[in-house]
Structures are given as C-alpha cells and as structure tokens.
Design a binder for these strands. Structure first.
Lengths: 189, 189
DNA sequence: AAAAATATGGAGATCATCTCCATTTGTCAA
DNA sequence: TTGACAAATGGAGATGATCTCCATATTTTT
C-alpha cells in the first residue's frame, strides 16, 4: 500500500523524533492548543523540516496514531477469526469505546481525522472503516445481523462517539449507543 | 431567558443584515471557507461592527440557526402532544434527518457547533438536547422504549449523523442509523 | 574525494483574527 | 428644535499563527 520512496538517514531520524514528541504532546492533551511552529522547536527541528514531513496537523496526528489504528484493525481481524461473527462485532465495538476512553487523545484525534472537512478521509479512518465493514458483512452472512442496513451506519455511530467525547456523561452514553446499535442490528425475526 | 438590553436602531439593523447575509452564505455552503473579515465587508459593515455583534463564527452561526433550531424543538413538542410517544420520537428523528438533508448548510454548522471544543455547548444544541431528552423520557414512561439507556446516546447518534455529513452515502447511512437506534430502543421483552 | 541528490533550519512573507479609538449616528430631556 | 450624552460605527493596524523559500549542510553515489 505505502511503497513510499526510501528516506534518507537523517530524514528518517527527524521523522521519528517528530512522531515521538507528538505522541508525548497528545497524551498530555495539548496538541490542538499548541502552535505548530512551536511544536517544531519543541521537537528540536526547524519549521521547514516539520512542514516537509507533515504538511498539516492532521497528517501528524495520523502518523502518530497509525500504529494504534492498525492495532485496532488487527484486533478486528483476530476477533473475526476466533469468534462467531456477531460476537466479534460486539466485542470489537465495546473494545473500541473502552480504548477511546483510555486514550482521550485518540478520541480527539480520530474525531478530527474523521470529521476532516477535506472530503477525502484519512488513510487511518479508511482502514478502520474497512475493518468495521468486514465485521458487519461477516455477521450478515452468518444471519446474525440484518442485511438491510449499511455498515456505514455503524461507522456514523462511532463517529458520533468520537466527536462527542467532551460530553459530561460520555462513557455511559457511548456504551449505551453501542448497545442500541447492536440490539438494533440483531436480525428482527 | 434572553432579557437582553434594548438595541439601538442602527445596531439592530446591522445585526439583521449580518444574520440575513450569513444565512445566504450558509446555504451556499461557503461559510467556513470565508474569511470572517471579508464576510463583514460582504455584509456592508466594518469588521469592528461584525465582531461587536458576533465575537466568533460560532456565535454568528448560532444566531442564524437559532430560529431553525427553535422550530425543530417546537415540532418536537407538537409531535409529542399529538402522537403516541414512540411514534413521536421516531417521526422526530426521521424528520431531523430529512431536514438536515434538505439543508446541507445546517448540517455543517450544527456539527461544528456541537463538536465545538469549548466544552460548553451552544444554546441551540442545549435546546435540541432537551427536546430529544423529553421525547425519549415520554416514550420510556409509555413503556414503549427501554429505560436502561441514556437519552444522550440518541444525541450522540445525531451528533454522528451531523458530523459525518460529508460521507458519500450520507443519506442512506443516516436513515439506517436512525433505524438501528429506534429498533435498539424498542423495549426488548 | 568529488559530484549529485537530498534534507535542513529559520528568517521573513503571507494571511486571518481581533482591537482600538476618532468619528458618526441615534436618543432623550429641556 | 437643539444641545449634550450615550451608543455604535468602520477600518487601519497590532497580533499572532501558518507556511515558503533557499543558502547551507548532510548523506549517498560514483
């Protein structure tokens, strides 16, 4: 997928430093309150270098969470391989909420990535969407889930969960929304 | 609620012009791509005047949609008074999607208002939330809807719908998500 | 070791946001 | 009416963030 050109040694080093520093800042929760230029300084590189590697905040955020999102997707595949489809889907969605809850920064970032007004979704969210779509499709094939709703609807629900992370009762509401979606998905006979 | 001080004649006029012009720009969909200062010029007022009336983009957006949201809330109350609770809720949510679909600009704006990172939700969305909460509560009292999920979950779903409006299959996905939520809400017996 | 290719940093250009206040406009009491 | 006071205006410029450009430095290739 990403058959990108080989990066020169120092360039790679800087890229790594940037991502490492960014991860720090994310976890502290200050990312979106920080001047992008200042972030460069913080990471010990020039602004030019920062911009060359990551043209936008979103690009950087995506890079930081690329691994995390990939892990989420891998987990989806693992669940799909080891559990009945319906259960895999449920477990995945529940786990997703728990994971976001544990990593506030991820929520902000995913919300930003997904909500990005630049039509084209980020790579990270595409992957995630694919994973969800697969889980739902499998459950449909199993007959455990109705076939008259688009998997995108589930994606939208996740979107809402991610985007609304600043609501007071977030965790409970998010869990409840997942419950609603899962119960709603159960094939009505 | 809004016992604001009486506004001087010219101030009121300018305020009205600003809101009218803003409505235009919203419907064209260009609001967030437009420099705020340029908007002032477009409306024929100085930047100072614009900022005095509406300190932020969000404030302006809220003013524009205040009426619209109020109408939505009024509709919720009307439905609640004339239909069985469950039906009122369903009709309201379906209508909400249709309404957003018909006013693309509203979607963007509401999404931005609701997603606003400044913790405190805008007045408009508070009202909306109250309306939804009431509809759900009534349906719960009726026994038509389960009582073990927070109304906020429905709000989150709406949030997702609003925020994800740039997805290709938006309308179908939104309708499907509403279906899931409604079916999920049905009291499981 | 020299040439070619690649990457760097940070000064400054660019651009949107917002403030400030000298001036204009509206209001109200006499 | 009119004078005086309050309220509102507009737009020039301060502010501050984003991004570009390129002379210099580093790495890779030959």
């Amino acid at each position: 997928m990403t058959a990108d050109k080989p990066l020169r040694a120092d360039a790679q080093r800087n890229r790594d430093v940037l991502i490492a520093k960014a991860r720090e800042v994310f976890d502290a929760g200050d990312f979106f309150d920080l001047r992008f230029d200042d972030f460069a300084r913080l990471a010990g590189v020039g602004t030019g270098t920062l911009y060359r590697h990551f043209p936008t905040r979103e690009a950087l955020a995506e890079a930081v969470y690329h691994g995390e999102v990939a892990a989420l997707c891998a987990r989806a595949r693992r669940l799909q391989a080891t559990l009945p489809a319906a259960e895999a889907l449920a477990t995945f969605l529940r786990g997703m909420v728990a994971h976001i809850d544990a990593h506030e920064g991820l929520a902000r970032t995913l919300a930003t990535l997904m909500a990005d007004r630049s039509g084209a979704l980020a790579v990270g969210s595409r992957e995630l969407e694919q994973a969800v779509t697969d889980l739902v499709a499998a459950a449909v094939r199993d007959g455990a889930v109705r076939d008259d709703v688009d998997a995108g609807a589930v994606m939208m629900a996740l979107h809402g969960i991610g985007a609304a992370h600043n609501r007071p009762g977030w965790r409970a509401e998010a869990d409840d929304l997942i419950t609603l979606v899962l119960d709603g998905l159960r094939r009505p006979l």
